[in-house]
Design a protein around this nucleic acid. Structure first.
Lengths: 135, 135, 135, 135
DNA sequence: GTGGTCTAGACCACC
DNA sequence: GTGGTCTAGACCACG
């Protein structure tokens, strides 16, 4: 499974699910027409309550990313790929902007901030490789 | 005043106050021994409830950043500057790590991410200059 | 329920709750892993505001006595029994010392004080038996 | 001076002053007819705000322990000695009862409590001797 | 149902 | 004026 939630992330769990489904759609990990994992399956895998997943899926339906297919479940909508690809940068950018702003405001200067980012990247790349392998 | 809160930040308002007071102490904007803005004053300026500020200040007291001076208010503790300076990087780093990870996970590659960061920085520097002037 | 608060105790209500929960954990009345009474339930039983109980529980969380279980409530932390048992004597001792000191200082001599304590004990033992029965 | 206040006592400072003045009257340290220390003098000695002492003295006047003497200040009332001697035990007893009850309730058994009291007494006697010497 | 947060308004003790 | 506490009532996220 390509999703993973962290209860201490700050973001609500359902929101993490929404975002990650969108990312999966944007990257093609979840192609248009494909069925999204069932609510029950995803809830079990993420060790999260059923209602939480349900809420995330409801929002994804509202935003037109998922479409209900009678008797089958929820499928990735046809226009969703484009939509999610556009949204992806925006979603990331918003949070990024907040954090960079807080960092600069905290008295960390621009150079230190660059160094901090640079020092974080290797661990992230490693984690990413591990995740892709695990998949 | 050197503080500003955003109700839609994701972080609780009281937590934003806690972090920003710590940053103010770390940068020397609020020197050791100085009185922190009074609960009522800060509540008014931030257009926030008194109890919300109070909660933030109580946490800062528990963490030893502020000290109560009977009938006078809350003063920055003598050891607080060092403590806050140490914590500053940690606080920023935690959020930064999360966001960078989400960004990479969203299908934005390392180069794009670097470019995104670079494109955000000028606006942030501008905002920072504006803030310092305003002060 | 094993708790009882007195608004005229001198101690803040939330502090009385904190202390009594710790005592309940120390004595095993509230075993590790068990859920603490819910905020709403306790507030109703003590005829006290929800936020007051909430404040007490937050402090107990900060001190590691209780742990939040998402959507389920607050559970007694695994290490809490030992911790509370250690703290119990300290909490009692601090208040005891103050009162004994005030008594001696008030002109009551050591013998009188001993007699006073001895004369109070039976009523307390009786009250304790009544409480245990009531439970 | 025979008074000493502790800001962390739990009791309000003005209340500590009231109680200790009463004790001083009961023990004869402040005989009937004697002038009580002036508000200013006492405030300075206790390193306490003038209004705090003032409030304590007001309450002592209300209770008939002190009497205003035109142009002179406040004197110990004639009936005050007897009154204070009666009150002394009651004041101590009330707090004692609370603390002993909390102690027993906390899971400390009667024997342990006796031992705890016994172990506290020497330090208190020592402190008392020191205080009497200092005076 | 659970806890977490916020608002509005009150009273108290202390300076 | 200051902080500290409490009440009452609301909304949110999560199970």
């Amino acid at each position: 499974m390509f999703l993973h939630v962290d209860p201490d992330n700050g973001l609500a769990i359902y929101d993490q699910i929404v975002r990650q489904i969108k990312f999966a759609v944007a990257t093609g990990a979840l192609p248009a027409g494909e069925m999204a994992p069932s609510v029950r399956e995803l809830a079990r895998e993420l060790a999260v309550n059923l209602n939480t997943v349900s809420k995330a899926y409801q929002q994804l339906q509202l935003e037109g990313v998922l479409e209900s297919v009678r008797g089958m479940g929820l499928a990735v909508a046809s226009g969703a790929v484009k939509q999610c690809r556009g949204e992806r940068v925006r979603l990331v950018q918003e949070r990024l902007r907040e954090v960079l702003w807080e960092a600069r405001q905290s008295g960390i200067n621009a150079d230190e901030l660059q160094r901090l980012i640079a020092s974080e990247m290797p661990a992230i790349e490693k984690k990413l490789v591990a995740k892709l392998k695990g998949k």
